[in-house]
C-alpha cells in the first residue's frame, strides 16, 4: 500500500504559528479556536460539523475531576466546572480541562471508511488541550495521557536563576536550516 490513507490538516493549516516571533507568548497558540476561526480557511459546514464532533468527544472522553485543584494538579492549564446529567435525571458537577481548540482532520481519499467521498468531509476532529507549560495535547484517544510528570511542567518560579537567550541562531545563513 503506497497510497497515503488520509491526511490531517491539524496544525499545518491552523493559525498556530510554530515559530512566529510575534506570537511568542503562546496565548493564541492553538489550532482552530472555534468554528469562526476555522471557517477563514475551510468550508464553514466542515468547521461546524468538526466542532460538534470535537465537543462530543470532549464531553465524553475528557478526564473528569472532583475539584478544580485535582484537575490543575493533573497538569491542565485551565479547568472548568461541567454539569453532567444522566438519563435518569440525576447528575453532578465535575471539573474538566477546558477545550482550547480543536483539530480537524479530513479524509482526502474517497472510499475509505468514514469518507463521504468529497474533499472536506470531516472524519476526525479532536479536542485540543493545553497544559500549564503551554504544551499542546491532542484529545480523543490521547485524552488523559498527559506525560507523566506533566504536573512539573511550567514556570520554575526560581527567581534566583537568570535566563539568557539568543545563544542559538547566529550561524544562520541567508537560507533556512532545511536541506
Amino acid at each position: 500500500m503506497r497510497k497515503s490513507r488520509y491526511v490531517t490538516f491539524l496544525i499545518a493549516a491552523a493559525t498556530l504559528s510554530a515559530c512566529d516571533q510575534n506570537n511568542s507568548d503562546g496565548t493564541d497558540a492553538m489550532l482552530y479556536s472555534d468554528p469562526s476561526a476555522c471557517s477563514k480557511e475551510m468550508d464553514a459546514n466542515t468547521c461546524n460539523e468538526a466542532y460538534a464532533v470535537a465537543q462530543t468527544e470532549h464531553v465524553q472522553q475528557a478526564p473528569k475531576f472532583a475539584t478544580q485543584a485535582e484537575c490543575e494538579a493533573a497538569g491542565f492549564s485551565q479547568c472548568q466546572v461541567t454539569e453532567v446529567k444522566t438519563a435518569e435525571g440525576t447528575g453532578g458537577s465535575f471539573f474538566m480541562p477546558m477545550m482550547m481548540g480543536y483539530m480537524v482532520g479530513r479524509m482526502l481519499s474517497p472510499g475509505m471508511p468514514g469518507a463521504a467521498g468529497r474533499m472536506g468531509s470531516p472524519t476526525t476532529a479532536r479536542p485540543v488541550y493545553s497544559d500549564r507549560g503551554g504544551f499542546l495535547h491532542a484529545g480523543g484517544a490521547q485524552v488523559g495521557r498527559l506525560a507523566p510528570g506533566a504536573t512539573g511542567i511550567g514556570p520554575s518560579g526560581m527567581a534566583t536563576r537568570v535566563t539568557t537567550r539568543g545563544g542559538f541562531g547566529s550561524s544562520a545563513r541567508s537560507f533556512g536550516g532545511g536541506s
Binding site: T8, I11, Q21, G26, M103, D131, L146, S156, R165, F168
Partner: peptide
C-alpha cells in the same frame, strides 16, 4: 509538530533564537 501530536506526543515550538539558558547567576 502536527504529526507528533497526532501520534499522541505533547509538543510546543519556539524559534531557535528564543531558546534560553537558565542558570544561577
Amino acid at each position: 509538530l502536527d504529526t507528533a501530536l497526532e501520534a499522541g506526543l505533547s509538543a510546543k515550538s519556539l524559534p531557535v533564537a528564543e531558546i534560553g539558558w537558565s542558570a544561577p547567576p
